[in-house]
Write a protein that binds this DNA or RNA. Structure first.
Lengths: 251, 251
DNA sequence: CGTAACATTGAGGCACTTCAATGCGGGTGG
DNA sequence: CCACCCGCATTGAAGTGCCTCAATGTTACG
């Protein structure tokens, strides 16, 4: 068998999202937000806003897929569970990313907030109708799906064939890339500051490892002066070159 | 580090597909084939046919993505490699499945024939143009991408969190499903006949295991009378119920 | 300042891999 | 048609990377 992280009672503690989501929801949200370019005008007409607190659940695997979301702020996780509680995080979802772009009518994973988060919500029916009527829009979402599929396939290579240290290296590099692109935060000596909003348990379930292994590997990277830790959730990448080597050939 | 199957010289032995593909290729292929429903008429206008022999390579990771394909006959594999030769099969591609549905302009994996195969080929430019002009068509391919993404995410759970025996059980069940749907071949005593066109090495790289582990697990299933082997590549599933149990909870 | 949740560290075990024979089936050439 | 051979599959024995179990350290929060 393997590790079973029966973690999900956690998420249950928080009140269910659907009962209180439109905390501050005007019909036309004040946020135009999102990925740089302004949102399609028609899309904005059917949008509403959802706020989630840390560890709150947005939706569960198996729920009717009534809505499509785009993240405006915060980090979420897509979670799949085995009957015995083993957990897999299929992806982390960041600002700009979409949730629920599917043609199936139940969600195939749960979505939980890693940090406080704000999302824009579209009723799926109307969202689909808009796609149908707007080829350009459809095309852009088609492209999004393609990217996501490619990313998922890369992760299959990681999960199927990479060692624990290679997995962690790949993960940290990805997070660093993201950090460089958005904040671009650096230390004076050229280190890349990387926020890790998720817990070690989340990282473990994302990489198909255990908490302990992740923790040990982080300690090892620190001992090798490849990273330093400011807090448990904030690392500084000192030697990106070495991490890059590690990400495809074991240490 | 793990297993490294430097397997791909094999594929190289055979003459390159692109040099000889239109073996029997009229401009308008005689095959209407494919997934039950007849192919979109306009699509058929731009189609040509490609034949591949066993172990031949259709295209390589990194090649310019000039074509979109649909499989008419045979089984192929999508292969990703790490620099040191470790191999991952991201998916097997069966009759009806598509290859190269992406928005990126290089392929993100190699495609190799597991068995002799016949494919229908569309120039990507024109294929894209058709999608743009035909919302219904675009929509149906959007749906295909969604399905594929969902399947890939299930495989992430398998690779990240399932034990070796669970992985094999899941795989055999999937193959059995497929077999039931298409041929529906059964033995007189209710066993499901399942063809495994791929080698143990392929199965191993598909499940993130080694050849030896796959072989041992198959032997164990045989000892438990859950399956029998007619040939190495043809198993009979005797106790589907037990396999189903195994697929999500270790033996 | 105490406590609870998370992270780290250590010791030991096990599932899967690695390395190494041995078996087996299918094709080929004598 | 048979003997040989080659590639693949199977089986065994030994090694190891990661997991499990358990204790200790650390941080956030009342």
């Amino acid at each position: 068998m393997t590790q079973a992280l029966a973690y999900q009672e956690k998420a249950r503690i928080a009140p269910v999202a659907s009962q209180r989501e439109p905390v501050s929801t005007p019909r036309k949200p004040a946020l135009h937000i999102v990925g740089g370019q302004s949102v399609n005008a028609q899309l904005q007409q059917i949008a509403s806003v959802v706020h989630l607190e840390r560890e709150e659940t947005l939706l569960d695997e198996g729920d009717p897929a009534d809505h499509v979301y785009q993240v405006a702020r915060g980090t979420l996780r897509a979670v799949k569970l085995l009957p015995d509680g083993r957990r897999c995080i299929t992806k982390f979802i960041h600002a700009g990313d979409h949730v629920g772009l599917s043609q199936v009518d139940t969600y195939s994973f749960s979505i939980e907030a890693v940090t406080d988060a704000t999302l824009v919500r579209y009723p799926r029916r109307r969202f689909q109708a808009l796609l149908q009527s707007d080829a350009k829009l459809m095309h852009s979402f088609y492209a999004i799906m393609c990217d996501e599929l490619a990313a998922t396939q890369d992760r299959m290579l990681l999960l199927g064939r990479k060692s624990a240290s290679e997995r962690l290296a790949s993960f940290l590099l990805n997070m660093a890339m993201r950090s460089v692109k958005s904040e671009g935060a650096m230390t004076e000596d050229g280190g890349i500051i990387v926020e890790l909003p998720m817990s070690r348990a989340d990282i473990a379930d994302y990489l198909g490892l255990t908490i302990e292994t992740v923790s040990r590997l982080i300690s090892k990277l620190r001992a090798q002066r490849i990273i330093t830790l400011r807090k448990a959730q904030e690392i500084v990448l000192l030697r990106r070159d070495l991490l890059e080597e590690m990400s495809e050939a074991a240490a």
